[in-house]
Computed example of a mutant assay.
Amino acid sequence: MTAPIVHLASVGTCLPGDPVDNATLAKLVGVDETWAEMFIGNATRHFTVDLPTGEVRHTLADIAATAADRALTQAGLEPYDIDCVVMGTATPDQLMPATVNLVADRLGIDNVPTYQLQSGCAGAVQALDVARTLLLAERCGTVLVIGGDVCAKHLETDFDLGSRTSAELVNYVLFGDGAGAAVLSHEALGQRVVIRQVLNRLVGLGREPGQVVDWFGLGDRHTDRTAVFEDYKAIEEAVPALAQQTFWELMEDLGWGTHELDFLLPPQLSGRMSDRISDGMPAPNARRVNVVRHVGNNGNALPFLQLEELLRQWDGPGRALAVAIESSKWIKSGVALERS
């Protein structure tokens, strides 16, 4: 009996509104343009919120449904062809109903299992892992996988420019909003790329979180707790090492040599840091697929934006490796792809 194979059939993405460049951020929130380029390396990003007015123009469900619809179209499928929907996000529209179910409703998908995973940068890979596991167990034939985040809901737009610390201003330069989706199937549809391996591992035992995104109910809405916290020093120290570990674990598990890798998709924290991390992964023949400079760090959307760019560049047989590291409680994740 032939073992089941999981194919990546298509990828669709959605970036809300027009790109917001560093010059615009400098005028609106007081970010220094030179500093933004020198230390962060992100040139533009997209927001679901209109920064000058604070008006919310898109929800996560809005942009996730658009990305999912594009993925279905690319695969040549209709909503009724989907057997299961899995979504990864750190910023759902509400705690209930789950955003995955709002998206399924907009697409016209019903009477199928749905799963929503609450996670940060590794959430998209976790969603791919769940989908792949279901397909390998032959519980589904075609799965729609979605990842997205709306970070702008945590950015204040009405404040005194002189009241912000440099740590707070980093978030305006670093983060962005977006959504992505992929169709996974037993059948060699669309792109005909095979998912060879998925790694998803918590490595945070006894370690303090590198990122915290809190939420408040009516009972504690006046708390003094900080809503968003990042330990940038810990992230800068830990993520490159964890990325290298993930790289080698996947390569050794598959028996791939470093010279056999055609594409490398490094963790997308910022333009500068992603370049630094990819330099530490010895793949001399691999093209680096780095999109964060132009889309911002939009969490669970980023792996799909990378995959979309990968598929634009990928012509013919080859191998690709994607790595994502989550700093909230430290998760290593990655995906290995092959096209024959």
Rank of each mutant, 00 (worst) to 15 (best):
P240H: 07
S278V: 03
E260D: 13
R70M: 14
G148F: 03
V292P: 00
T59D: 09
Q211V: 13
T133E: 13
S327Q: 07
M38D: 15
A188G: 12
D93L: 09
I277F: 03
A301E: 00
L77P: 03
T44A: 10
L264R: 00
C14H: 06
P16T: 11
D93E: 05
I63L: 07
I195G: 01
A320V: 08
V150T: 08
G120W: 10
P97H: 07
I235H: 04
A336H: 02
T66P: 08
D149M: 02
V143E: 02
V56A: 12
D214E: 15
M1V: 14
G316M: 02
D149C: 07
C14L: 06
D214N: 13
A90I: 12
V145C: 09
T91S: 10
P79H: 05
T142H: 03
T66A: 13
A181R: 06
R139W: 06
A9Y: 06
Q74H: 15
S327V: 02
K27S: 14
R132C: 12
I82Y: 02
D315A: 12
E230G: 12
L117F: 05
V20I: 13
R288E: 02
V292M: 01
K27L: 15
A238C: 10
L102K: 12
V170M: 12
N300S: 10
M281I: 07
V203K: 05
V173Q: 00
V150Q: 04
R70V: 14
S163H: 09
A104G: 06
A104P: 00
E156F: 11
R132N: 08
Q94R: 15
C84T: 10
T226I: 10
A43I: 14
L250S: 06
I331T: 09
Q245E: 14
A75T: 07
Q191N: 14
R221C: 07
G180K: 01
P4M: 06
G178Q: 03
D279I: 12
P284Q: 01
P284T: 03
